[in-house]
Design a protein around this nucleic acid. Structure first.
Lengths: 234, 234
DNA sequence: CGGGTGATTGAACAAGTGTTTAATCTGGTG
DNA sequence: CACCAGATTAAACACTTGTTCAATCACCCG
């Protein structure tokens, strides 16, 4: 089994049991979703169900540990590849490395299920896009928007959501070996239409936009709000 | 409880039991997801769990019946509003009608879970977009693409996926009363950035697109394939 | 009215779930 | 060595799940 461990968690060449359980859980949750049973995970890790709750308190505790691990991993990996690309690109790169594929799969399952990790992740995506778009705007390669925050959220939701849906439909089996290839294919299918849309747009004239701007003339209204993942209160 | 029944399924003013069960299941599945138990649905419909399997054979049979019902409903409703708008717009309209909101919620749950209905639905979305884009192209309001099929799929996945993700994060509670308002807010947040992107694009110059076209010079390659929901074999 | 057919129920079943508990094993410390 | 704390296990527990079964109920046809 691939070791998802970073450092300071192994002892004498073999991982500490708790970490081994957690990593097995990430793999199994990624493959089967969160309805996977404790006994299955225990068998994967070569232990008993009781031991899992001994170490993590409950199944939810185990899930929290997985969340934290994946999140920490995301942060670490983001620093390494901060220079290039949006969040989707980052995920795509990571999914190529076979060792990291389980993490990405786990992330997809989390967004499929909703919850805190998902909210935090979309928050990351949005702030990544924010930085990326701002830099591009300053450099003159990205056109300014009438409502920058809204556009940022829009783009982040589009990119993340379409990826999630695509994998929900095409990767339902979710064998982790095929996963890197799937991800590559998704990116290949995506690139041309995305680039086309981003450079040339879709509509031939401005009438629709102008009509809307006439009808609703308050784009960048209120809104600095930090409670929600994307700054939009309910 | 609101009656989701069309016609020819009621008898003497009250719905036939099987239909009542099915409709209750649609509401409950939409609210709680497919992990909802048979007994809960039975209680909602005022019957016993055993009766459900007596009528539908199994829980999966019940789900199939719900799928079929929602699909038939979609087809019927699509004919009525064929003139205007893409698939997302259609869903938005339907979600406004309180009577139809449970159906839309059920659809979202289906796409969240994957499976046949989800595949068929994204197929609808794609063929809708195909018709809509072709008409627009012929009328000169939509720019042509280097790979029309790919762009169609791309746009359908973007629209559907971002909607799905948005509701997964913001509508996790999923109280069906608040649902129409949620949907309206989603559309409001979406409209300006979408129109902007569609008419003006995102990038200021063509360099990225041209570089890509230089690097990969075979856009509309093979591909008529009907096995997959979106014409892309695995 | 008699009888049969389908609707409907309540209870039981078997399998699965997360969790608890008591016992055992193991390793380090006094 | 004695001893204790933590790791680990196997079994049991309480609960939910989908499904089955036998019995009852209601109604229509002859």
């Amino acid at each position: 089994m691939t070791s998802l461990g970073g450092a300071s968690e192994e002892r004498g060449g073999e991982l500490a049991t708790a970490s081994r359980i957690r990593d097995a859980a990430i793999v199994r949750f990624g493959r089967d979703g969160f309805r996977a049973g404790l006994r299955t995970i225990a068998a994967d890790a070569g232990v008993t169900a009781g031991l899992i709750v001994h170490h993590f308190g409950s199944k939810d505790g185990l899930r929290r540990a997985c969340d934290e691990r994946v999140l920490e991993f995301m942060r670490r990996e983001k620093k390494k590849a901060l220079t290039d690309g949006t969040g989707t690109m980052l995920l795509a790169q990571m999914a190529q490395v076979e060792q990291f594929a389980p993490m990405v799969l786990y992330l997809l399952r989390s967004m499929q299920a909703g919850g805190e990790l998902a909210a935090e992740l979309i928050g990351h995506m949005i702030s990544d896009a924010e930085a990326y778009l701002s830099a591009g705007e300053a450099a003159g390669v990205v056109r300014p928007s009438r409502d920058r925050a809204a556009r940022t959220r829009y783009l982040a939701y589009q990119a993340t959501g379409s990826m999630l849906l695509w994998f929900t439909l095409h990767g339902g089996d979710a064998e982790p070996e095929k996963f890197p290839a799937l991800f590559r294919r998704y990116m290949e299918e995506l690139t041309l239409p995305a680039l086309e849309l981003f450079t040339e747009g879709l509509l031939a004239d401005r009438s629709m936009l102008d009509e809307y701007l006439m009808y609703v003339p308050d784009p960048p209204s209120a809104s600095p709000n930090a409670a929600d993942p994307d700054g939009t209160a309910s």
